[in-house]
Design a protein around this nucleic acid. Structure first.
Length: 149
DNA sequence: GCCAACGTTGGC
DNA sequence: GCCAACGTTGGC
């Protein structure tokens, strides 16, 4: 899951109550569907820093709630307001994500250099989705890399 | 700041 | 339902 560290960084997450954050602000249907339809409590999350000097995996986290309506879609002054969304028929959902541990930064070049991560979604050309699924094999490789050193 | 890629919008 | 125009993402 991508987050801009200027918005919510791994350190921000570490300092939040219960080290948990609602993954608000997703306004892409595919990414929304991943959260709503596929994520389960206990699923592992690679916390990825994007749009920053050093993009890459910054920590390990986990899903700690089922998807529920994203509160920001109803907030008039919020930039994520969606005027077509109502309480009765919410359009956007989020799960809660809890930190497992901050790790060293596994940067994009390092991910790209790994022969077994060739098909990792986030490395594919033109990938812009803020949430993408990771296979168990990819999780194993990346979480192990992250915990080295 | 550039630009490729891709999603969304809206006229027809 | 098509598709051009426009907006956004995100690495560089």
């Amino acid at each position: 899951m991508k987050s801009e560290p200027s918005d919510v960084s791994i350190d921000d997450l570490a300092n939040l109550p219960h080290q948990t954050v609602p993954w608000y602000g997703v306004r892409n249907y595919l990414a929304r569907n991943f959260m709503r339809d596929q994520m389960k409590i206990g699923d592992g999350v690679l916390f990825y820093h994007s749009s920053c000097p050093e993009p890459g995996v910054a920590g390990l986290a986990q899903v700690v709630s089922a998807a529920y309506p994203d509160e920001t879609q109803f907030q008039p002054k919020n930039k994520y307001l969606d005027e077509k969304a109502t309480r009765e028929t919410p359009r956007w959902f989020n799960v809660d994500v809890q930190l497992i541990k901050k790790t060293r930064l596994v940067g994009l070049p390092e991910l790209r250099a790994h022969p077994k991560l060739e098909s990792l979604r986030i490395l594919q050309k033109g990938n812009r989705l803020s949430i993408t699924p990771v296979t168990p094999a990819e999780w194993k490789i990346i979480s192990k890399l992250a915990e080295e050193k």
